[in-house]
């Protein structure tokens, strides 16, 4: 009698407002699985494969006779695939030391809000690199295991908002064969990096791997920490990464333990990565 009056439109809408909070994962903290040279916490979606061509030129201060580095080239190409949620597998080949590499990445924790609050994403990354170049000294006894080196990383990242994501990368590289007695087999690094989006499809990235002192001698050239700065440009199914770096290698152990360039001396390489996504397996969407 008194209450029969029609309720307002707002009430009808409020009937729809009481959704149960669901766990909502943060996505796309970075535009691709590589921050610049190194890895990010991202991986292809389950069933997707990425094809990577990474390329950079010689160092810019190599003079006109090398056309400021453009005559020289370092290349790595690779594939990575996510067979099941949270696990990514990859393979690749680099010109630097004629290296084959394989890796896996697994997400241990995933940043989320809603029903489950998790402030960060934590991933484990491990790669193995096989140096297939000719033995430096074929006359002495050489072991196959001497060709191998391993990289282990924890990738800890947080997407703070749509624009800013930061990542920390405690890293260890194990080298089976080292050039001198003063070189350590286990090399420790601390990496830090991040991205800042400039527009929806363009982001500015930084990546720094601090090589803890007194671990790597690698004569004849002095070894430096790897520092890279670049732009990610995303166009639908492609991501282009343009960057400047002081590292000549593109595989983990190469740029982590054998970066001979010095930014302050102008030993800077210009490079680009090109990534293309292929959908191998379509996710199941229920149909009518």
């Amino acid at each position: 009698m008194i209450v029969t009056g029609g309720r307002s439109q707002d009430d009808l809408m409020s009937l729809l407002g009481d959704d149960q909070p669901q766990r909502e994962f943060a996505y796309a903290a970075f535009k691709s699985s590589h921050l610049i040279l190194g890895q990010s916490i991202e991986m292809p979606s389950p069933g997707d494969m990425n094809f990577w061509v990474s390329h950079h030129f010689g160092h810019i201060n190599s003079g006109f006779e090398n056309f400021y580095g453009l005559d020289q080239a370092f290349i790595r190409f690779g594939f990575e695939y996510t067979p099941i949620d949270r696990l990514c597998l990859g393979i690749g080949r680099s010109t630097y030391e004629e290296t084959f590499d394989g890796y896996l990445k697994f997400k241990i924790l995933r940043q989320s809000k809603g029903a489950v609050v998790m402030p960060v994403t934590l991933a484990f990354f491990s790669s193995v690199a096989l140096n297939s170049s000719k033995w430096a000294d074929p006359d002495r006894k050489n072991y196959f295991t001497s060709r191998l080196s391993y990289t282990f990383q924890l990738l800890l990242a947080r997407k703070f908002n749509d624009y800013i994501s930061l990542q920390l990368m405690p890293t260890m590289v194990h080298r089976n064969l080292v050039p001198t007695k003063a070189d350590k087999n286990d090399v420790f690094l601390i990496g830090a990096g991040g991205r800042c989006k400039i527009t929806k499809r363009l982001s500015f990235n930084l990546e720094y791997y601090y090589l803890l002192p007194d671990q790597v001698v690698n004569p004849p050239a002095a070894v430096h920490s790897s520092f890279s700065a670049g732009l990610d440009i995303e166009t639908g199914g492609h991501v282009f990464q343009l960057f400047f770096t002081n590292s000549s290698g593109l595989q983990e152990h190469a740029f982590l333990t054998n970066t001979t360039g010095d930014w302050f001396m102008g030993d800077i390489y210009f490079g680009f990565n090109l990534m293309r996504v292929f959908t191998i397996k379509m996710p199941k969407i229920p149909t009518d």
Binding site: D48, T279, I285
Partner: peptide, 9 residues
């Protein structure tokens, strides 16, 4: 939901 995860992203 999309057929391709990247599209959804």
């Amino acid at each position: 939901q999309f057929e391709k995860a990247l599209m959804q992203e």
